[in-house]
Amino acid sequence: MLHKNPSQLHKMACKKLLLMFSLLVSLLLLLSISPCATENVTVSVYYETLCPYCADFIVNHLVKLFQNGLISIVNLRMIPWGNAFIQSDGNFACQHGPDECLLNTIEACTVAVYPDVVKHFNFIYCVEHLTLQRKQAEWMSCFDTARLSEVPINCYKNGYGKQLEQNYATETGQLNPPHRFVPWVVVNNQPLQEDFMNFASYVCKAYRGTKLPQACRSLSKSENLPKNSDSTNSVCYAGEDT
Rank of each mutant, 00 (worst) to 15 (best):
K4N: 05
F21H: 10
V25K: 11
V25S: 13
S26V: 15
L27G: 12
L30E: 08
S34M: 02
A37R: 14
S44Q: 13
E48Y: 02
T49V: 14
H61S: 15
H61Y: 14
L62G: 09
K64H: 13
F66I: 09
L70M: 11
L76I: 11
M78Y: 09
S88F: 05
S88T: 11
F92E: 10
F92P: 02
E100S: 05
V111K: 09
D116S: 13
K119A: 15
Y125Q: 10
Y125A: 02
C126M: 06
V127W: 07
Q133T: 07
A137G: 10
S141D: 14
C142E: 04
F143R: 03
F143T: 01
D144P: 00
N158H: 09
Y160D: 05
G161F: 01
K162H: 05
L164M: 04
A169R: 07
G173S: 03
F181R: 00
V182N: 00
L192G: 01
F199S: 02
V203D: 02
C204D: 06
A215R: 14
A215C: 12
L219D: 10
K221A: 12
S222C: 01
S222P: 00
L225V: 14
L225M: 15
S229N: 13
T232A: 13
T232Q: 13
V235S: 05
